[in-house]
Amino acid sequence: MGELHTADEHPPWDGLEGTERHAVCIEAARDGNRLALDVLVAELTPLVWHVARGQGLDRNVAEDVVQTVWLALLRNLGNLHEPRALVGWLVVTTRREARRTWQPNKRETALSDEFAEQLESETGLPEDVTLIDDRDRRLWAAFGRLNRRCQELLRLTVLAGRAEYRAVAEALSMPHGSIGPTRGRCLTLLRGYLETEGGSR
């Protein structure tokens, strides 16, 4: 602490994007720049939120998990080996935290990947949403019929963005090369469900 950071008109992350931006913010945060942390929080909290929700947590619990993850980042600022891989670290940490929280009384038997795969459930996803657009309604219903593994994979790949395949693969403990094919199968399933929900495009 000690040194006052003057309001910088051009913070070092200005104009940067993606992993580059995250890395520069992490470096600045390590040097005590609180604004850098707030930038990361503002930009990546939606991702952390959706990962937590994708694990089947209700909204209240997901809120606590989001906070716990950011507090954990504070603590690990100094020993985050790859600041560029921040998104991956957040995804992995959120999933771990969410699973720990999932059944507070049965920590030892936290939700396993194998179990999650079989669990055909919309836990955590609002089912009773009123979607005015018919296409939206059908797509959401079709998405809800996917197994959790597919739901999570699709959520993660769209949320984390194309550049983050490695992070997603690590988070889901999948070999890097199998993400594409698996995602393809999930999308094929989704199309099938979409058709039975009353016509595709």
């Binding site: 929700r53 797509l139 998405f143 769209v158 949320l159 989704l190």
Partner: peptide
């Protein structure tokens, strides 16, 4: 296209609470 529709839907249906940030 389907994925970006999905992305929009997830954000619309299940947004983070307004005060979470």
């Amino acid at each position: 296209a389907v994925l970006s529709e999905l992305n929009r839907l997830v954000d619309e249906i299940d947004p983070p609470p307004a005060d979470l940030l």
